[in-house]
């Protein structure tokens, strides 16, 4: 029973969070999502539920499942094969949600020496860690604000370069580590390091349902699921299938996306209006808007796409008075979105 995942489509409400997750799957270059919210609001459930909706991808059969279409970012094993002109075996590999537990030690995250191999053969061999497993997948950190600083540093390095460099215990190794970073946190428990906050392409604030009807639905579905997970999943199979197909179609459509000038201008306008630093926000706005358009079956990005995702991209980037809550800005954002 513990291995059965609650169906994504059975989660009541929380549409912003669900959208943010789906858009990242459609376009991984958005840069992940940070989900903030009070305790017990299905944050972790939603992220783990995403696993059932993830598409397959073509990748090499090496331990890192390299994306060989990017020849400059493959592991040493694949590179050797490519250089020697050998044919690489490709496989359809389903994307996964790889979890990084808070108690993880540095060696297990970065990867380390394979002890068994070393004792038996006297040779050093690299043993992949979480960052290797995460390549091409979703890397999920629950309670990301409580993650130890030295692990955060490892994450930041890999997230920035898409590659993990290891120098430890006499092992020197490097491999691709490109992942969609998803973090969940309860702000009551403490703040997130600003560098890490910056890494997230999107941020969503979730709250519990406040009306009796939906709250009842939450309880009912949970009870049904606990009672008989298989048949509960069965009853959502059609919806799950439909959503998954829609995601796959949108992913394929991404290649044909055309960014209209109109939408582009609007993204820049939005960043300027809200005083967001740097160009990363503009670019992320466009990437997210593209994914949004693709999800809604279009190949051209329109103003509505930008407006729909602006909230997700801008809230955590707004420059604000250090002694002020961000709520006023959020209101302003909503006003601005409505004004178009």
């Amino acid at each position: 029973m513990s291995d059965l995942i609650f169906p994504f489509t059975a989660i009541v409400g929380q549409n912003e969070m669900k959208n943010a997750l789906i858009l990242n799957v459609i376009n991984p270059s958005i840069g992940g999502v940070l989900i903030r919210g009070e305790k017990g609001t299905a944050k972790s459930t939603a992220v783990r539920a995403l696993a059932d909706l993830l598409p397959k991808r073509k990748a090499s059969d090496c331990p890192f499942h390299c994306d060989v279409s990017r020849k400059n970012n493959v592991c040493p094993y694949c590179l050797e094969k490519i250089d020697s002109g050998e044919e690489l075996e490709l496989k359809d590999i389903k994307m996964k949600v790889v979890e990084l537990p808070l108690s993880a030690t540095e060696d297990m995250v970065a990867g380390t020496l394979d002890l068994e191999h070393a004792i038996k053969t006297g040779r050093k061999k690299f043993e992949p860690g979480v960052l290797a497993k995460a390549n091409g997948n979703i890397l999920y950190v629950d309670e990301v604000n409580l993650l130890d600083d030295h692990i955060v540093d490892l994450l930041l390095d890999s997230a920035a370069m898409g590659r993990n460099y290891i120098e430890r215990e006499g092992v020197s190794f490097t491999h691709p580590s490109k992942f969609i970073l998803v973090g969940t946190m309860n702000p009551e428990e403490g703040d997130l390091r600003p560098q890490l906050l910056d890494r997230f392409g999107m941020a969503v604030d979730v709250k519990s349902e406040k009306d009796v009807e939906s709250r009842m639905d939450v309880i009912k579905r949970r009870l049904e699921f606990e009672k008989d997970p298989e048949s509960f999943k069965e009853s959502y199979a059609a919806q799950q299938e439909e959503l998954m197909e829609r995601i796959i179609a949108a992913k394929e459509r991404m290649a044909d996306i055309v960014l209209e000038d109109d939408a582009l201008k609007m993204a820049v306008e939005a960043s300027l209006y809200f005083g967001v630093d740097g160009h990363r926000a503009d670019i992320t706005l466009l990437k997210a808007a593209s994914a949004h358009a693709a999800f809604y079956g279009r190949t051209s990005v329109i103003r509505e796409d930008v407006a729909s995702i602006a909230n997700l991209v801008l809230t955590h980037r707004m420059r604000r008075n250090p002694f002020q809550e961000s709520t006023i800005d959020a209101e302003e954002l909503n006003k601005w979105i409505k004004s178009i």
Partner: peptide, 19 residues
């Protein structure tokens, strides 16, 4: 319904209490 109402009125955050 009563469970949901009770949790809202008592200001329980999240849904763990209801469940």
């Amino acid at each position: 319904t009563l469970v949901a109402e009770l949790c809202i009125k008592l200001g329980c955050e999240g849904h763990r209490g209801d469940i």
